[in-house]
């Protein structure tokens, strides 16, 4: 037997597909949480492979802050079309308009935090009991202890000290009414694994991920895309830079890196030599050392 073509990416792929199929089988109303970023795009492709020739049996759920890059929204819509999917949108703008949440003020205002309540509302309204996300354990230190099947109580909270032990590949998705699970099929992938796989599988991504010229501002060492959602400080200037994004969150917080990497090979080379983690450019994580953990406890992705 020639096992050579079964490389480490194939093993990760097989593991993720196993998890995705368990989600399909164990939950009544499972969905894919779709951020528009590369990890959720990857997840959608893995879901396609898991069930082909049947179609993807999950709707996509997108929590739209209203501050998304237009590229992300266009990409989302074409993906939905291509795989003939249902799309459920959680509308943060609507929650703001209805007075359910209050927008942050000031120069560093972001809607990142508001996503939490919109996400929880969407989960409750649609009776979602299993929400898959593209989270990876190498992303951030509090994620290192995240399970594949992560239990959330009826308030959507995560209790890091009281997680279910996860043994072998036997996932326990049992829950009481009103509780749900977040599931992370690509837990064991690193950023580099993701890029190598995207390349191997020739998976398209939004153009944001590749080097391009863009009007930017630099704020606290973070390069932000200039947009109508950003208010300038007096001494801030708009400058054109050659950049790309390593994650695709809100326009107000997603930091870019200066880069000339225009294709998968150049990006893989860049990441292998990179000195900063992909979340290193995210203003939301810089607020406190345990910022991510705090948000996760409250129900963040």
């Amino acid at each position: 037997m020639n096992a050579n073509y079964f490389d480490h990416l194939s093993e990760l792929e097989s593991e993720a597909i196993f998890v995705i199929r368990e989600v399909y089988s164990e939950f009544e109303n499972p969905v894919i949480l779709f951020s528009g970023g590369k990890d959720s795009i990857l997840l959608t492709h893995l879901a396609k492979k898991a069930f082909y020739p049947a179609k993807i049996p999950f709707p996509l759920v997108h929590i739209d802050t209203g501050h998304n890059f237009p590229e992300t929204i266009n990409f989302r819509d074409s993906l939905v079309n291509k795989f003939n999917l249902n799309l459920i949108i959680g509308d943060v703008q609507k929650s703001i308009d209805e007075g359910l949440v209050k927008e942050e003020n000031g120069i560093n205002a972001s809607r990142n935090y508001l996503q939490i309540s919109s996400l929880i509302e969407t989960i409750e309204k649609n009776n979602i009991d299993g929400a898959m996300g593209g989270g990876r354990r190498d992303e951030e230190k509090s994620r290192a202890k995240e399970r594949f099947f992560s239990h959330r109580n009826e308030f959507s909270q995560w209790d890091p000290k009281n997680q279910r032990p996860e043994l072998w590949n036997l996932f326990n998705g049992k829950k009481n009414y009103g509780e749900h699970f977040r599931i992370f099929p690509i837990s064991n992938w690193t950023e580099l694994d993701v890029w190598r796989y995207l390349k191997k599988e020739k998976i398209n991504l939004p153009s944001l991920y590749f080097s391009h010229k863009r009007k930017c501002i630099v704020r606290k060492n973070t390069i932000l895309s200039y947009s109508k959602f950003i208010s300038l400080n007096i001494n801030e200037k708009i400058i054109e830079k050659e950049i790309r994004f390593r994650t695709c969150g809100d326009m107000t917080i997603t930091g870019a890196v200066e880069s000339k990497a225009k294709n998968y090979d150049e990006i893989i080379k860049e990441i292998s030599m990179s000195k900063y983690t992909e979340r290193g450019g995210r203003a939301d994580d810089k607020r406190a050392d345990s910022a991510m953990e705090d948000r996760k406890k409250e129900g963040y992705f």
Partner: peptide, 16 residues
């Protein structure tokens, strides 16, 4: 990993 462990300076869970 987690905040409480940082405070206590011990590892209490499995981290990957």
């Amino acid at each position: 990993g987690l905040k409480s462990e940082r405070e206590q300076g011990i590892t209490i869970d499995v981290a990957y």
